[in-house]
Amino acid sequence: MRFNKLLLIFFIFSVGTRVSAQTWVVPDDQKGVVASFKFTPDMQKQGEQIYVKNCQSCHGQMGKDNWAKLTPPPGDLSKEKAQVQTDGELFYRITAGKVPMPEFRNILAEDDRWWVIAYIRSFNPKYVQPNPVAKAAFTGRIVTLAMQYSDPMKKIVVSATEQLKEGQTGPAAGVEVMLYVKRYFGSMQVGDIKTTNAKGEVMFEFPADLPGNKDGFVEVTARVNDPKSVMKTTPANAALAIGAKTDKPSLTDTRAWWSVRSQAPIWILLTYTLSVIIVWGFILYIVYSIMKIRKLSKG
């Protein structure tokens, strides 16, 4: 009996979350969130640029009802449906997103998101901004990474320091660190995620055969793994001469089939141009002869 009841509760709960997943409910504690500053016309202008770049492709131009045909429809944000919501609700939706609306948490900085809201609100003459509330002081960890290559150990050493009270700093232990190396089309992770020791340090082996530039330099980045954004972190970047020296000429440096136009093989240029000139030469000659026919009528 008890078990059945549990099942029932579980069932109701799961259906409940389903429905909420479809209606996009904003958590109560987020609804009252307000900006920490007063909106200015300047911010609206900034917000407009952000809107045009990040939102317009789906939401369309403000007030024109020309949003993209998606399901659910994105809607025009100048209209009532969006405008009746609190700033907190708008902020939450922009921050969290919901498929197909993207999550802007890591795409737009917090201030940027508020500026977009300032822009969206500028289409609502009745809107009065609630009093700004200064941001509570940040209480999470503030971690800064630094990176070095240790020649004797042949390893990359990443050291994490964090801010302690009153401007002091000390080693940050137990921080998860990821190492990336820049490649043609983005960054490639090197090794696994590693956790800093009591000295705030972590070491990564670097594959010796990874191609670098012609002097062997590779661009390496160390980042803190903080998927929930509970910390403030600063990554470390460095160009290290630890890759394999690679000095391959660019594929478009030489004349070849596959190369750009200015690097077409001479023989192709000649063949193509000569064929065109010869054939069109004859064509022009024929056109010229045809014009002569007219003059020969009497004779």
Partner: peptide
């Protein structure tokens, strides 16, 4: 018709042009 009068020169031009073509 380019003032064509069946003049031999005209025919010559036409025939030669056709051959080239």
């Amino acid at each position: 018709s380019l003032n064509f009068t069946n003049h031999p020169e005209q025919n010559k031009i036409i025939n030669r042009s056709i051959r080239i073509l």
